[in-house]
Computed example of a mutant assay.
Amino acid sequence: MAEHPHALLIRKGYEAFSRGDMDTLRSMMASDASHHVPGSHPLSGDFKGIDTVLGYYGQLMEETGGTFRVELRSVLVDGRGHAVALHHATARRGDKSLDEDGGIIFRIVGDKITDLDECVADIDVDDAFWS
């Protein structure tokens, strides 16, 4: 059985992110896409618009000296424009390290990602790492 197109889109996005391929990510997202990051640290909040979202991804790499990595574990779809990606993230910032599970709930309209709601296993761990 072939994988659903929305699952393929999400897998392609994770691969592009892992390569630092912002041009591919830009082509996959709506111009008014939003990425919502939980927590109460300097990188949490709502990033609205494709340039702002991609800028946030650049900040992740800058803050971690390029060590931020995500390993996609699975993708779930509902066939109605929603996908859930479960992943494992690792990174280093100075003497701090991040090693936790997380996920993103995606909203897809047509063939474009319009909204990303990020979830983490432990918000306190995330806040401590990014603060």
Rank of each mutant, 00 (worst) to 15 (best):
A2R: 13
A2S: 09
E3D: 12
E3Q: 13
H4V: 05
H4S: 13
P5Q: 12
P5W: 10
H6M: 07
H6R: 06
H6G: 02
A7F: 04
A7W: 03
L8N: 14
L8D: 10
L8Y: 02
L8T: 12
L9V: 07
R11Y: 00
K12R: 15
K12G: 10
G13Y: 02
G13I: 03
Y14K: 03
E15I: 04
A16R: 03
F17C: 04
F17G: 01
S18W: 01
R19L: 12
D21K: 12
D21P: 10
D23Q: 15
D23I: 08
D23W: 07
S27Q: 12
S27F: 05
M28D: 07
M28F: 09
M29Y: 14
M29G: 09
S31C: 01
D32L: 01
D32Y: 02
D32A: 02
A33I: 14
S34Y: 07
S34T: 13
S34M: 10
H35A: 14
H35G: 07
G39M: 05
G39R: 03
H41C: 01
L43G: 03
S44F: 04
G45Q: 07
G45H: 05
D46L: 08
F47L: 08
K48N: 14
G49A: 12
T52G: 08
L54Q: 11
G55W: 06
Y56W: 14
G58V: 00
G58T: 00
Q59A: 14
Q59R: 15
L60C: 06
M61G: 14
M61E: 13
M61Y: 09
E62C: 01
E63P: 02
G66T: 00
G66Q: 01
G66S: 01
T67Y: 11
T67V: 08
F68W: 12
F68D: 07
R69I: 03
V70Q: 15
L72S: 10
R73P: 00
L76A: 08
V77W: 02
D78E: 00
D78R: 01
D78G: 00
D78S: 00
G79M: 10
R80V: 07
R80D: 12
R80I: 04
G81F: 11
A83M: 03
V84G: 03
A85W: 04
L86T: 12
L86G: 05
H87S: 15
H87I: 06
H88F: 12
H88K: 11
A89T: 13
A91L: 11
R92P: 07
R93V: 02
R93T: 05
G94E: 07
K96Y: 03
K96D: 05
D99C: 01
E100C: 08
D101V: 05
G102K: 01
I105Q: 04
F106V: 03
I108Y: 02
I108M: 05
D111A: 11
D111Q: 13
K112I: 09
K112S: 10
K112P: 08
K112E: 13
I113Y: 09
D115M: 03
D117N: 11
E118D: 07
C119Q: 07
V120M: 04
V120K: 03
A121G: 11
A121Y: 09
I123V: 15
V125C: 08
V125L: 11
D126W: 11
D127K: 03
A128W: 09
A128D: 15
F129W: 00
W130M: 07
S131T: 13
